[in-house]
Design a protein around this nucleic acid. Structure first.
Length: 496
DNA sequence: TGCGAACTCTC
DNA sequence: CTCGAAC
DNA sequence: GTTCGAGGAGAGTTCGCA
């Protein structure tokens, strides 16, 4: 690629196009992909960027006017490629992670250096521009830039607290709150909050912005979690925290939107990305008031950690994080520097239907519709899952479900409700979609229960009972129930 | 004007 | 977000 | 140890259509 098109090319190859989301999604793109091709000069990458740049600024209703003509001039494989990249469904076996390796090779730098550039620039494509573009810098920016969000450090799952502790030398254990990740940038009186994907969510976090005014630093970059709490400090379910942030609404019922800060990436002009967690925590303690800090402790005592864990759960938290006190912020973090320990439960549910898979699961019945038993012997769908299945199990269940098939509608195969499957899940949440009003969160298959019949499956009532006690039903659920009532009234008009 | 589909975002 | 497969 | 691909849940916003 010519140097001035490297960033664009990398964006497309990594499935993160420079234009960002267009407001034109899969439905329209795949429709466009079937329109007749038009003769004419071949499109260059530059033509594509220009058209999509205009689509981006045009707003959602007019975006299609720019994307449509573009697609007319693309041939079949090109259409599939661009539609795939734009919908985030490019399946070519290499995305950002592989691109980092390529950039390291091409720019003759270490992987760690390239990862650092990606992190401070905020995207793989941007890093490609800095490393290989026309104005390439021999010493590309390695320091973070205020009000340009960084890719936040993530955690890997651990099966248990014991396992998590065994994988670090010196541990920091802290609450894992089920809220919205928040990266705070502060310079003087100016404060902004960014989400995990780097979107500015400041507008939805007004009370938090006010609280952050008390952070005692001329400038700072902080990492934390925003959550809606009941007046007594109990965290509200994730749905309500998300709703509060997304709708920019003032919390009702005395609810309080709070931030819990757990890391500091920059303090008073000093970059702390390479510093050990222990000194970053020192920085948090130095500049963040106590009521804005994530509760936690540094300990090498398994007993102390276990007590902290139990207390966190008693407080209604999602679980705990276990972190390596010696680790830097993501850089070279090949080891599991951050681990999450979350609660889960298991139930035995009945397979009501399955969906044909796609991609590497083409030809296999993959996505299971899960039903809980009602007292009257019928089943109520409470979620789907395709997780936890090995290729071998996938083969087995395809054959087994085919033998139970009753009817086929599109890619869904209905089956006689006879097969019982043990499902592990993260929690029960209110659902406006399923008839029972609940849905499982993060469900996955543990194993099939050949020893159980459908009549032995767990009941809807037992799942409903595990919903967190909720004085206030979220607005969306009220709306859904109202919709349901309206539908029933209408049906009764036609079918008295 | 009201509704649902499509899209974007969180976990 | 979660998991298994692949590298 | 890391990345990729398969796909899950809800909620808010925008926009075309009846």
């Amino acid at each position: 690629m010519p140097a001035d098109e490297v960033a664009s090319a990398v964006g497309w190859l990594a499935g993160e196009p420079l234009c960002g989301p267009l407001g034109v999604g899969p439905a329209q793109l795949w429709a466009l992909a079937r329109t007749p091709e038009r003769d004419g000069p071949r499109l260059t990458l530059r033509d594509v960027e220009e058209a999509l740049g205009q689509a981006r600024t045009a707003g959602r209703s007019d975006a299609l006017d720019h994307v449509g003509p573009l697609f007319e001039r693309l041939d079949g494989p090109e259409r599939a490629f661009f539609a795939g990249a734009l919908t985030g469904s490019l399946r070519q076996g290499s995305l950002g992670g592989v691109m980092v390796l390529a950039l390291a090779e091409l720019s003759q730098r270490s992987e760690a250096d390239v990862r650092r550039v990606v992190m401070v620039v905020g995207s793989v494509a941007g890093a490609a521009r800095a490393l290989l573009g026309p104005q390439r810098d021999e010493a590309p920016e390695a320091a973070l830039v205020l009000f340009r969000p960084l890719a936040p450090m993530l955690a890997s799952p651990a099966e248990s607290l014991t396992q998590a502790l065994a994988r670090v030398r010196h541990a920091r254990i802290e609450w894992k709150i089920d809220g919205v990740r928040a990266q705070v940038h502060k310079a003087g009186a100016r404060v902004a909050i960014y989400s995990r994907q780097g979107h500015d969510i400041s507008a939805g976090c007004a009370p938090v912005l006010d609280a952050l005014a008390t952070v005692n630093a001329t400038d700072a970059v902080l990492d934390g979690e925003v959550v809606l709490e009941a007046p007594d400090g109990t965290p509200r379910p994730f749905q309500e925290s998300f709703s509060a942030v997304a709708s920019k609404s003032v919390p009702r019922d005395g609810g309080r939107l709070r931030i819990y800060v757990f890391d500091c990436l920059r303090r008073d002009g000093v970059d702390l990305l390479d510093a050990a967690l222990s000194s970053r925590l020192d920085a948090v303690e130095a500049i963040v008031p106590n009521d804005l800090r994530m509760p936690g402790l540094r300990t090498d005592s398994p007993d102390e950690a276990a007590r902290f864990h139990a207390a966190a759960l008693a407080k209604g938290q999602e679980g705990v994080m276990v972190k390596d006190l010696d680790s830097p912020y993501r850089l070279g973090a090949r080891a599991r520097a951050w681990q999450k320990v979350k609660e889960f439960a298991t139930v035995d549910l009945v397979v009501l239907a399955a969906e044909w898979g796609s991609g590497r699961r083409k030809g296999f019945l993959s996505n299971l519709h899960l039903g809980a038993r009602r007292d009257d012997g019928t089943f109520c769908m409470v979620g789907k899952t395709f997780k936890g299945l090995t290729d071998e199990l996938l083969r087995w269940q395809t054959g087994r479900l085919e033998s139970l098939a009753t009817e086929r509608a599109g890619h869904v195969v209905m089956v006689r409700p006879e097969l019982v499957v043990e499902i592990r899940f993260n929690g029960v949440q209110r659902s406006p979609r399923y008839p029972g009003g609940i849905a499982l969160r993060f469900a996955r298959v543990v194993r099939y229960r050949d020893d159980k019949a459908a009549r032995d499956a767990d009941t809807l009532a037992s799942l409903v009972a595990s919903l967190p006690a909720s004085p206030s039903t979220s607005r969306s659920v009220e709306k859904a129930e109202e919709r349901e009532r309206r539908k029933k009234r209408q049906l009764s008009l036609f079918d008295p």
